[in-house]
Amino acid sequence: MAEIAHYKEMHPLAFRITHWVNLVAMILLILSGIEIHYPVLGGVMGLARGLHIFCGIVLVVNCIARIVLAFVIKSSPMGGTRETVTDFWNWLPQKYNRHQLGAWIKYYLFIKKDHPLSAKLGVPQKLSYLLIGILILFMGYTGFCLWDVTMNVPFFAGFTFAVGGLMKLRIIHYFMMYIFIWFTMIHGYLALIDGMALPRLMFFGKETGGLTYSLETWNIDGYDDLGAAEKIEIVNKEDEQAAATA
């Protein structure tokens, strides 16, 4: 029973949608990108290019939308609570995380035994998510530098010149794909290793009961089984009644 409760306030619908868009766009971008790098499949280069450019634009727009929504939508700063703050606070250094970077690193290196108390986004998590946001925008930018339609626009051509040409830019763009793949591997691993509660919430909006967290004491303060005990009682009573009538 050591899981924190996963409430919808942790990942509101709008952010679950942007997460879905990120996931689908990135998978399509990676697959079409590999095809563009070297045509493993015959016959689909036109499709791959069209899809790549479309998904690239979708990913960039989605990233910008996510950033804008962070200032509009409220989400909880930690699992196990239904209290919310405007989402962008969760992307800045938070008091719940203070002095916890070392604790997180030690925890993942098995030096520390128990799970660190933290905000919804732990310290390494927050840093890597922020980096990914910047990377998406930079990846989009280098993509536009390479796309023949926009490559000669001074805003993009200037960067190509500074980097030293299209070949170098292609290698940077290609290598950054692997950074996304590495990020997703670690991200997926860490999200799944703690159990299915988080993916259930993030993908399907299903809540899971667990420990509750107090924003006042910055600590675990109870347990919420989402009314499961009551439901079981009701079922038991019904069973009893059924047995009595029988």
């Binding site: 029973m1 002095h99 916890q100 128990d114 108390l117 420990l211 107090s214 004491t217 600590n219």
Partner: peptide, 21 residues
């Protein structure tokens, strides 16, 4: 699942507590 730390290590070391409780 992992056990949660009862209190943040840094807070414990420096005797810091949070909130009314």
């Amino acid at each position: 699942g992992p056990d949660w730390e009862p209190v943040r290590e840094y807070d414990k070391k420096h005797g810091i507590t949070h909130g009314s409780a």
